[in-house]
Each structure stands twice: as structure tokens, then as C-alpha cells.
Write a protein that binds this DNA or RNA. Structure first.
Lengths: 229, 229
DNA sequence: ACACTACTGACAGAATCTGACAGCAGCACC
DNA sequence: GGTGCTGCTGTCAGATTCTGTCAGTAGTGT
């Protein structure tokens, strides 16, 4: 048996236990040495499996690694499909692919009749206003926001003059025709909005900005008079 | 990337296709040779995955799983949240509420760190073009589409003249400023598009229309030159 | 006939895997 | 404190697997 197959078996095996299993038991069940079990567990953990190893007890797979069965109403499915279609059509490619992939995962855990509803969903996104042809890589922006990392921007303002700034990216807003990065600007010491199609160059940095994104977002909302959701 | 990881990716990739996909496409997507895809497919089949391979067509994963999907990635969650926010902002109230409750159901099965990601998601929907103030009740339209029921419409065309028609509602398309009902019109014996803000009166009927919605949708797509998804 | 596809076998070099051994650390029980 | 159970890590060399390439067969639809 190949290692790949054994790893799949190991997941299945761990799924069956509701109490901790010792590595020795797993090794015995899979016909492999204990050392190899340790390596396999590490590999699964690297792929996102939450496997708790307690000395003296054994291993336990915590929920949240695999998607459990889900139930949705007709309307909830319609909402999910329509939303995903909008993302696929109007956001960046990476996010569109993620929307598609998420929907496929949901479909896989639905009962047959609901999966059929999802597949035959008849809410469509019509073509919209053209999006800017060239713009900053939104995937990079999204990752910097998610990880709270500083960004170095070359930005062309509405007069055509370019400036370089270090900003703390806080949010990304999607409008019908443009996308706007919300960020704290170190230069201006204030929140600024940057149209993604006017970002001439974009350099992600590994430096984490000092305040939490959630707090910044709250301040920004307040500064704009936007009620918290 | 390890083979085990690639096998999981391959399953997820196959899940995303509802029509057969060729091995060459899979090889391209996973960055390996075609021969390796054949080997991987064989491995998955040996593990119990039901993958049909048709010469001349490609591969299709039948529902029912070897392994449930892996938990959502952070990008997939971003896509789901953004899509739901768009629905909440730009679709009708009932669908917006459904988007919220769907998201709540998803949040309920997330591990803590991912739920935190979902709660602090920083992709926003900016205010868009104003939607028509008065329009037909979209919830009624959606239900008639879902249940394949005839509708009686009083429709005001672009010249302001009103006519009454019996239609078979097939789909609902969301544009930036308007929503359009796609329906087969019994009067004209053809597909017609009805802006929801020009529907003066709307009477759902209990009478089911004689053809299946999916077949009508296919015909409509063909008549409009829209490639099937 | 043709294009496209699934599928199989063989081979060699590259990459990975595996078991064995040695050792550390946390925990429970005696 | 000692003992036994467990998780976990590092190292190493030999065994194993994996992978791409090439060649060839066969099924399907146009």
C-alpha cells in the first residue's frame, strides 16, 4: 500500500474513535512502524488536520477538519449560489475559483434532493459595468489584509501624480465599477481610500502592522459615519 | 506537493465539475503529467471513489463520497461571506435574510480560528446604483421559478402600454440596476424578458407548467447565444 | 477516416519513504 | 522517587515509490 492510501486510511481510522487512540494501535492497524505513524500524523497536521496528541493518552481528531453534513432551506441555497455566482463574475479570479470550490464542497455534503436544487438554481448574474482592465492583484491585497501586513504602494491619484506610501490595509470594498482598498496611510497618518486600478505597483511586506485590523476597521467605520453591522 | 495532498486536491477538483473533464485538464491544473493523473485516478478508485472514465469524454465523480470534503479554506470563506453580503445588500429582503442564516449555519460547523476569520472578514460591498423603488415581489417570483408554476403578469412595456400575460418563469437575472424575469410567454410563444420594476401586478398560480425548467433554461441559453456553464 | 480520449506496460533516474536506534518530555500510578 | 506508558524528534542507509517519457491499444463521437 502506498503512503497516500495509508494516509487516507489513517484519517478514516481516526474519524472512528471518539476517545484517544495510541500511536501503537494505529501502527498495528496500518501494518507500519510507530515511527511512521508519527510521520504520517505530522503530514496530516501539515495539511490542516487538527489532531491532538496527548502524552500518555493518544491521538484524537478534533472536529473541523472535514466538512460535516449540512442542511439548508431552498432560499438559503439560492442565496449561496447567487452570491457565489456574483463573486465568480465580479471579483478576482482567485476568489471566483474559491467561490466555485466552496459551492462544490457544500454540494458534496447535501442530501440528494437539496443538491439537485443547488444544481438547477435559476438565479443568474447579468453582465455588469465593465471592470477596470488593469488593476492591482486583488489576491495579494486580500492576503495582506488577512495577515495584517504592511504594503508599499505606488499610487496615481486623480491628478495623475504618483506617490509612494506605506499603508496598513484594512478592508477591500467592491463597487459596481471599481474596487477600493481601505487603509491607514503612514504618510498622512489617517485612513485613505485607494482605487485598485490606480495602484501602479504593489509590494507586500512581511512586517505586521501594530494595531489589530478589527480595531482599525471600527475606527474607519466611525470616521466615515458607517454604522457597524 | 506530496502525492497525498495531490490526491485530495484531485478529488476536490473533480467535485467541481458536473460534466466530464479530460485527464489533460486535470494534469494541467495539478502540474503533473497525464500518466500520473491516470495513476492517481486508479489509486482513488481503488480506495473506493466512484470515478467514471469515459473514453472521448473525460472523468466524472459520482456523488456519495469516499471522504467528505476538507474544511473550507480561508479564501473560500472570504468568497462565501462576500457573496452573502452582496446578496444581503442587492437582492430582495427574504433572500438577504436567507444569506445571513446560511452563513450562520456554516459558522456553526467551523473551528474557532476559521469562525474568527469569518467574523472579521474585511471584504465589503460598496453602495451601488440605486435599485428600483417599487418592483414585483421577488420572493414570489423565485418561488414560482422553483416550483415551476405559471404566473399571470400585468406588464408595462417601454412604451407604457400594459398587457396581461401568462408566463412560465424560468430564471431571474440580477443586473446592477434592474432585475429581469426570464420566462416563456404563452401569448407570444417565445421567451421574453420582464423587468421586475415594470411588473404592475403579479398573480402566482397553482398550475404547473408543462415543460421542465432545466430544459427551458437550456433552450433559452441557446436562443440567446449564452454558452452553458 | 479522424480527433479526442481513457488506459496499460516498461524503464530509469529522482525523490521519498521506512524502520531501527537513541534520546527527551509529560503524565499517572505505585 | 521510580516505573511504565505515551508523544515526539533526529539521523541514517537501504528499500521503495514515484514520475515522466515513450510506445501502443481501444472506445467514442464527428
Amino acid at each position: 500500500m502506498s503512503r497516500a492510501e495509508r494516509l487516507l486510511d489513517l484519517i478514516q481510522l481516526l474519524r472512528q474513535y471518539r476517545y484517544p487512540v495510541s500511536g501503537a494501535v494505529l501502527a498495528e492497524a496500518l501494518g507500519v512502524s510507530l515511527r511512521t505513524i508519527y510521520r504520517d500524523i505530522a503530514t496530516l497536521q501539515a495539511q490542516g488536520a487538527r489532531i491532538d496528541g496527548e502524552p500518555g493518552l493518544g491521538y484524537l481528531l478534533r472536529p473541523g477538519f472535514l466538512l460535516p453534513p449540512l442542511m439548508f432551506s431552498d432560499e438559503e441555497l439560492e442565496a449561496l449560489v447567487l452570491g457565489s455566482r456574483w463573486v465568480a463574475d465580479r471579483a478576482d479570479d482567485a476568489l471566483g475559483a474559491a467561490a466555485h470550490s466552496a459551492l462544490a464542497k457544500i454540494a458534496a455534503v447535501l442530501p440528494d434532493d437539496l443538491r439537485h436544487d443547488l444544481d438547477t438554481n435559476a438565479l443568474l448574474i447579468g453582465p455588469g459595468a465593465p471592470l477596470p482592465a488593469a488593476e492591482a492583484d486583488l489576491a495579494v491585497l486580500r492576503q495582506a489584509i488577512r495577515r495584517e501586513r504592511k504594503l508599499v504602494l505606488d499610487y496615481r491619484d486623480q491628478h495623475g501624480t504618483t506617490s509612494q506610501r506605506i499603508v496598513w490595509p484594512v478592508a477591500l470594498a467592491f463597487f459596481d465599477r471599481v474596487r477600493v482598498l481601505v487603509a491607514w496611510c503612514e504618510l498622512r497618518e489617517g485612513f485613505r481610500h485607494f482605487r485598485t486600478d490606480r495602484i501602479a505597483a504593489l509590494n507586500p511586506s512581511d512586517q505586521r502592522y501594530p494595531r489589530r485590523r478589527q480595531a482599525l476597521l471600527r475606527d474607519w467605520r466611525e470616521s466615515q459615519g458607517i454604522p457597524p453591522r
